[in-house]
Design a protein around this nucleic acid. Structure first.
Lengths: 158, 158
DNA sequence: TATGGCCTTGGAGCCCACTCCAAGCAAGTG
DNA sequence: CACTTGCTTGGAGTGGGCTCCAAGGCCATA
């Protein structure tokens, strides 16, 4: 427990109070900007990912290099948390990790990749719509079978 | 192509015209009951699965043993096609193959497993509902980001 | 001073769902 | 007859996404 709140005891250089308008949603950060230097175990607690996975994400380039403390330990920021949030959502869509890495590279590459990023998100959006339609279809089949089992079990072949 | 239509030239014993009321849906079979002895490559064409996968499904017990011709080749029935249809749907839900095998075993075990099958389908139904909700959530995030990229690209941090 | 907790790294290992391979058989065609 | 096509089998290989391991550093409390 010695390192769970090392935040204000270290080099905390009060970042330029960047208003992060990416979210625009109801999600709030555990700590305000400026105090956002989370240890890996804190991020584990917030995201539900394992420390292994977090380190692996960084290794494969799915996250930009995470800042380190003077002893070399990772210190995640609110921005990193936002990114992990997005990654979690994309993962739910079934997007392969390689594609997410591609998107991460585009983000790191800077402004001239807006078009490509937009296209990638549009494509993903279409995939999500398709998957929702598939699942609805499946739901219909499931409902049909369930009511067969409830009403007339013995006639059901499968 | 020599073996693509071996159906009526073989032992076709005109099955007892079982009305398959599992489907109750709009899906029609390629051939009527009684002429339903499809080769593996026909099933590949109908289902989009590979022959490898079809044989693998049988090996692991995800399909009951498929009937064979006198030379040992597989001959699938309309009922097998129905089952593969269901498996395809369940696969879309993300259900692990092991769970599908479990369901297949219950089906083979007979009438006294109705309760368990019903429960399994209900649980799957809940999973599907959850996944749809997750995807809707993701869709909202995606839409937000997409409109950011369209309207105010340069302010988008990710 | 030593014990324990949390962290670091590169690389190996694991599980799942296929996917492919080698060797071989049966049937039809030139 | 040789050759091709379509199928058979058990077992090995592949790719994705983690998951774990060994060896070691830092630091606080007993």
């Amino acid at each position: 427990m010695t390192q769970t709140t090392p935040v204000t005891t270290e080099e905390t250089e009060q970042a330029p109070t960047r208003t992060d308008l990416c979210a625009a949603g109801p999600r709030r950060h555990p700590r305000p900007d400026g105090q956002d230097r989370y240890t890996i175990s804190e991020v584990v607690a917030f995201t539900g990912l394992t420390a292994h996975t977090l380190r692996w994400y960084e290794r494969i380039g799915l996250m930009a290099h995470v800042d380190r403390s003077h002893t070399g330990q990772r210190r995640y920021t609110n921005r990193d948390l936002d990114w992990l949030d997005l990654v979690g959502k994309l993962r739910l869509t079934g997007m392969p990790v390689a594609d997410m890495v591609r998107y991460a590279e585009l983000v790191r590459a800077g402004e001239n990749t807006y078009g490509e990023r937009h296209a990638l998100l549009e494509a993903t959006r279409r995939d999500v719509l398709d998957r929702i339609a598939e699942l609805r279809d499946t739901l219909a089949v499931l409902d049909r079978k369930i009511s067969f089992y409830a009403d007339a079990g013995p006639q059901q072949p499968h």
